[in-house]
Amino acid sequence: MLEIKNLHVNVDGREILKGLDLTLPAGEVHAIMGPNGSGKSTLAYVLAGKQDYEVTAGSVTWKGEDLLAMAPSERAAAGVFLAFQYPMEIPGVATMTFLRTAVNAVRKARGEPELSTPDFLRLVREKAKLLKIDPEMLKRPLNVGFSGGEKKRNEILQMALLEPALCVLDETDSGLDIDAVRIVAEGVNALRSPDRAMLVITHYQRLLDYIVPDRVHVLSDGRVARSGGAELALELEESGYAEFGEATRGEAKSGAAA
């Protein structure tokens, strides 16, 4: 479903991804772990199409198409969804207006009819309930004054509404207490399906207690240094990332390539 080959990416003239390979089949959940600075968030942003992330070599193929040639909104329409580590606050845009604009933009791009107001409201209420989101919250400006947990739940709500085929979760557990992690994880698990792939990016193993991955990849210095089953995450919890160059952030050390 998702095929990343020899991906090299520069940010501000510095090479962050240095030949990353990854294959994510439909229906599977893969975790991306790794020390700070290993390129995890860069991978997330490149998949979503953020500007200023310069791909110097390699390819990303999504359902047989060249993902890198698509504009960010086209990727969203093609089913790619990034749950942001730091969701943006937009004063002046009501959350509900934003959700509706996004849902209808994606539906339009997919050749589906726009949802009527009552249908849309029904859908939002149903999905919000699952994530324990107070409908009153949705009347407020997008993410403005939301707690960390509210912001992350709002991300998962968007994911549920847009029904993507590829979910990329960037450090979705960061800054959340354990109860909030559980609610978010339940929301994510509810979206697991045979035709949906997920990439769960996390520094800590904690989130993977709740979202159990099919595969775990450890990123180090811009490449996948090791891959394994769910047990690899537990192993890392024990040993830490020392083996993968935690102390050498931002430096091109090759010790991780082992």
Partner: peptide, 14 residues
């Protein structure tokens, strides 16, 4: 640009 990207990433054309 960061706000713009956030909206685009949700499928809203530029």
């Amino acid at each position: 640009e960061d706000l713009l990207f956030y909206l685009e990433a949700r499928g809203i054309p530029e």
